[in-house]
Nucleic acid binder design. Structure first.
Length: 417
RNA sequence: GGGUCGGUGGCAGAGUCCGGCUAAUUGCACCUGACUGUAAAUCAGGCGGGGAAACCCACGGUGGUUCAAAUCCAUCCCGGCCCA
């Protein structure tokens, strides 16, 4: 039997497939319908940009704000110094303060696209847990907070079990991560009356800890809600493209490549992804997702357009689509293709096609480029390349040249001015 | 600090006792080709790096033994587990 939510937010979450679990559906639903609620999601600063794996949660915050509530994006400036061990088989390398600060700056760019941080009753807040974690006094913290945690219980969490079962060492530093995250929730409740933490289902244990702690210390009623860990329908983890991670920052992955990632969604995922990553009406998502045969390609383009528009703007989405049409439907080239400029110096004495393939990003190494050529996968201006020894000179690059690796990956090479 | 096991290609994990046939078995991931719809499934091939090529480099680091070392020896670094 399904619970019928009263609040807009819960209704959206359920309809669109964002919900994996909630500590108290009814209690949360009632709080949400009673008035404005504040919720947070924490992000560790482990990279310069968010990637598609984070996008689901960002969308949740966006809906949350749209429904009239107040979202907090919490940057893990403090917790990143510790490193979340959840479901990890080994310790992650520790980042320095400079790197963390840089990463936070990079991630902020994306949030601004999805959330409204302006003032206003439900304007989003951007916080950093370094604010309260950096200055903690160890003994005080242990006595006030540490005493509420049972080591026995922490050891029983699924998130660290695999680590212990494999007899991989779990350092005390990492072990404290969950305590710090729990403490975040407590602080956010105290400072901002934040009563809800959301996150991926891998964060369940951490979230529950925060709720327990806050309940004990402040006697507050607060909630946790998790989203499913998404896998594509062919069982792969969401978020790898040909080149690697699918970043949300445009300086890490161009809008065109981002668009391509969505355009290449597996048939079976189209409907689900439309509901999760776009704001089209549910019925529309379902209709598009149900298209059969080649028709579903239209739906994929819609998906790519909508997601790209949210992340990079409508204009960038249209430009990406225009290039895609040009490249895939007309067999031409487009401005939005990844472009590499070669300097005149580089080309002066002639440059091997293998080098050019590497420079263009179509091959990771010279060996790979040669393999590509011998596999018949490399093309220049749509002509198959057969000679790995081919040299190009400035004349050959007079006008931009399209290089292709396989059917989908294309790049432009031109001479720098 | 003591004992013990281990450090191999993106990951996992063989090989190490009995040195050469090992750029290195196998699985996953990944890439290309065919079929298609820029899909999935399937089938086929590939899958360390540099170099235009000849050829050169590798099994934690460094030395050594040997005609020849991932494989033997020495030493150093790093990690796991157990004991203090």
């Amino acid at each position: 039997m399904t619970y019928h939510p009263k609040s807009d937010f819960m209704r959206v979450m359920m309809e669109r497939g964002y919900l994996a679990d909630c500590t108290d559906y009814q209690g949360l639903d009632e709080a949400l319908s009673a008035g404005m609620v504040t919720a947070y999601i924490g992000y560790d600063a482990t990279a310069k940009s968010l990637h598609v794996g984070h996008l689901l949660n960002v969308m949740m915050l966006r809906w949350f704000q749209k429904c009239g509530h107040k979202p907090i994006t919490l940057m893990g400036g403090g917790t990143t110094k510790v490193g979340d061990p959840s479901f990890r088989s080994d310790e992650r390398p520790l980042l320095g303060p400079d790197q963390i600060a840089e990463n936070i700056e990079g991630m902020k760019q994306v949030f601004a696209k999805y959330l409204t941080y302006e003032k206003g009753e439900n304007g989003a807040l951007m916080l950093d847990n370094a604010e309260w974690l950096d200055g903690l006094n160890y003994l005080e913290f242990l006595r006030d907070i540490g005493r509420h945690f049972s080591v026995n219980r922490m050891l029983s969490f699924e998130s660290v079990k695999s680590r212990l079962d494999r007899e991989q060492s779990l350092s005390f530093l990492e072990f404290n991560y969950m305590i710090l995250q729990a403490y975040d929730f407590l602080e956010l409740n105290r400072r901002y009356s934040c009563v809800l933490q959301m996150g991926g289902s891998d964060q369940w244990g951490n979230i529950v800890n925060g709720i327990d702690l806050t309940r004990r210390v402040l006697d507050a009623e607060i909630f946790g809600l998790t989203s499913p860990l998404l896998t594509t329908s062919d069982g792969r983890k969401m978020g790898k493209s040909a080149g690697g991670a699918v970043w949300l920052n445009s300086d890490m992955l161009s809008p065109y490549e981002f668009w391509q990632f969505w355009r290449n969604t597996t048939d079976a995922d189209v409907g689900r992804f439309l509901k999760l990553y776009t704001e089209l009406p549910v019925e529309e998502c379902e209709r598009l997702g149900a298209l059969g045969g080649a028709e579903i390609n239209e739906a994929k383009a819609v998906l790519a357009n909508e997601v790209t528009a949210l992340c990079h703007g409508r204009e960038a989405a249209e430009a990406a689509q225009a290039t895609a049409r040009e490249v895939f439907e007309k067999g031409g080239a487009g401005d939005d293709l990844p472009t590499v400029e070669l300097s005149r110096d580089e080309v002066a004495g002639g440059i091997s096609i293998v080098q050019v393939l590497v420079r263009s990003g179509l091959a990771k190494s010279g060996k790979e480029a040669k393999r590509l050529i011998s596999d018949n996968g490399a093309r220049m201006g749509d002509e198959a390349l057969t000679d790995p020894g081919l040299m190009l000179d400035a004349g050959a690059l007079q006008s931009p040249v399209k290089l292709s690796a396989g059917k989908k990956r294309h790049a432009l090479v031109k001479l720098a001015e």
